[in-house]
Nucleic acid binder design. Sequence first.
DNA 1: AATGAATGAGTGTTCATTCAT
DNA 2: AATGAATGAACACTCATTCAT
Lengths: 207, 207, 207, 207
Amino acid sequence: MSTAERRKREIENRKKMILGATEKLIMSQELDSITMNAVAEKAQLAKGTVYLYFKDKDQLLAALSVKGLNILLKKFERAAVEGTSTKDKLVGMLRQNYKYFQKYPAYYKLNAEFESKYSASALKELEPISVKIYALFNSVIDEGFSKGEINAKLDGKYLANIMWGTTVGVMQFLRIHSLQFNRSTGLKKEEMFENFLESLINGMTSN
Amino acid sequence: MSTAERRKREIENRKKMILGATEKLIMSQELDSITMNAVAEKAQLAKGTVYLYFKDKDQLLAALSVKGLNILLKKFERAAVEGTSTKDKLVGMLRQNYKYFQKYPAYYKLNAEFESKYSASALKELEPISVKIYALFNSVIDEGFSKGEINAKLDGKYLANIMWGTTVGVMQFLRIHSLQFNRSTGLKKEEMFENFLESLINGMTSN
Amino acid sequence: MSTAERRKREIENRKKMILGATEKLIMSQELDSITMNAVAEKAQLAKGTVYLYFKDKDQLLAALSVKGLNILLKKFERAAVEGTSTKDKLVGMLRQNYKYFQKYPAYYKLNAEFESKYSASALKELEPISVKIYALFNSVIDEGFSKGEINAKLDGKYLANIMWGTTVGVMQFLRIHSLQFNRSTGLKKEEMFENFLESLINGMTSN
Amino acid sequence: MSTAERRKREIENRKKMILGATEKLIMSQELDSITMNAVAEKAQLAKGTVYLYFKDKDQLLAALSVKGLNILLKKFERAAVEGTSTKDKLVGMLRQNYKYFQKYPAYYKLNAEFESKYSASALKELEPISVKIYALFNSVIDEGFSKGEINAKLDGKYLANIMWGTTVGVMQFLRIHSLQFNRSTGLKKEEMFENFLESLINGMTSN
DNA sequence: AATGAATGAGTGTTCATTCAT
DNA sequence: AATGAATGAACACTCATTCAT
């Protein structure tokens, strides 16, 4: 058993190492330019070895995406605990999402493109962590409903999705129009995001 | 003159035909898998012929995107005219966006992915129509401010972007999770979208 | 007859016009980038029309080459007449060759690349003019022999070829290393050519 | 170590094999018709494999050219050593050039066309060997000047270039008019070349 | 005679994946 | 387990030539 366990741990370490190498690549490059060749090289491994740990490119990127979502989940959990009112909690969670996007644009981009690009089998890898995040949002929302802090006109079963979808949309907008924001006249990413938060949360919660 | 005009019209028709073929492909495939080969085949044309009408792949996709955005702009304009209050107008416009997405998912998908993927030269093709859409939103929003119908806490210069970004985000969410929505229990796309609208517009407008 | 003749002349004019357009292109572009498309456009003719006057691209370039060689022949003839001694005549002819190359680098390049690149059928077009040039050289050389002005060790039947081959070689060298010559330190094209002439003609003629 | 060395040698062998296949193609075809497809086929390799050993087509042709020039350099060096007088040395070197051309017409053709056609990056590959050949010629010429064996009217800094340019020109002439020489009456390549040598060297050296 | 739309074989190059060692 | 050489299908794009009008 002991050797089997050690082996298992070694495998896990190898996977992490490869994931780390891929991460570095994604940080500095376009998603499209991440090739298995580059990953192997960055990991100082042979190409074949990468395939020993990840069935194919999809699985590798899915694993990376999961890694990113786990970091995000941690942040959400803290925000959910630290907020006092439902509004506080939700605002805090979405702000964490924004910060995550600022700090790890690579993961964000990966997540955003991943879902619409990759294979069903890879998407399965993402499901458990997605479910957890979704559940966390729903628990906060449910609590808000029971406390009367959420706009009664709204249907609770959609709110987590709406929050996720709109936040992702705004951040994608900011990423795509990044040049405009950096270059120009009076537009600030942070301000736009706060305006978004204000109108969304204001619309979701009862005054 | 007559022949020159006819020629011009024929060229326009050919372009439309090719655009139509590309459209069909996009309806049923990933954007990445749209190859010039496939386009030519679908259009029952030789590869070289496609290049007679579109300088390169980017220009072809840009033209398709522009075609879609023009349809959308028309819808927005009608909604902006028909609405009475600012809220009515904005809700109407976003609903049109949703309908457009339901009817032409291909265009939507294209627009969403296009911006982050394609070349500067192709993006230039998109600029005029983007500017028009943006201006339309801003005119409605400005009117709303002057009538006191918009939440005074919000900064007008971000609202059009927020509306666009969040709507796109929600629709992307619906597209990606389409299977879930169709399969499962009690989730309805339309309902989710209406909940989104309610919370967004409610948050943007003053009571 | 009269109409037939006029027709013939018109055809000849058209050919010249197309040739002129091709010439302009070759003046300013790499040989490889001369496409039939570009030729037609420059001649303000439809592509098909070009093919009415020249069977294929080879024939067009061959005709252009012939045009250039005719200009050159004229220059040679004048130099042959104007020179007094055989040495004078030969030096004069080769200097004309150099001047031609300086003034019409395009033709030169064409001729140089043409021979080694193009089809047998096109080469046939070049034969008559080549023969004329060759004959002119030989007449000067023969005269030199009979006057005892040429190194008796040499075989007259090769001299024209040697003069042509070496001159072409030196000019090709100058063309290829043009940048070096223009950039650098103390190397001058004209000087190199004169040094070449000095040693060649000195070697060919008897002291 | 041993395995690393073996690996290295294997890579070298593969490169040579591919180079060999390309050589065969060049022997029998126009440079333009050397496609990577054809190279791979001739080498009985997949197209991708060729790219494993040569970054692109330019590099492949550059490597082939270098290979040829190295053979030539060896020949030049021997001739330079074996000759007694400057005249002997130079005649010997140019004769080696001719023999090389007779034995490896492919390399010759490649070298001649290569310089005027290919990319700067590929030309860089050729530089070191070119420099060596040039230096060798210059050392012989300089020695000749100091011994008074070279025509004092000539400028030493051009002589290597002239020798190279004229020799190349004559050989190119022979290649292009090969059919004529083989077919016809009394013309012999070797004789023409010797006549060229006689007149060139005679013109360059002082009696 | 003149047109120019249409063709399609052909180009160099990339990259996820496999498999013998 | 680890390697990395080999694969080959796929891609965007070009251009000399043809032919119906």
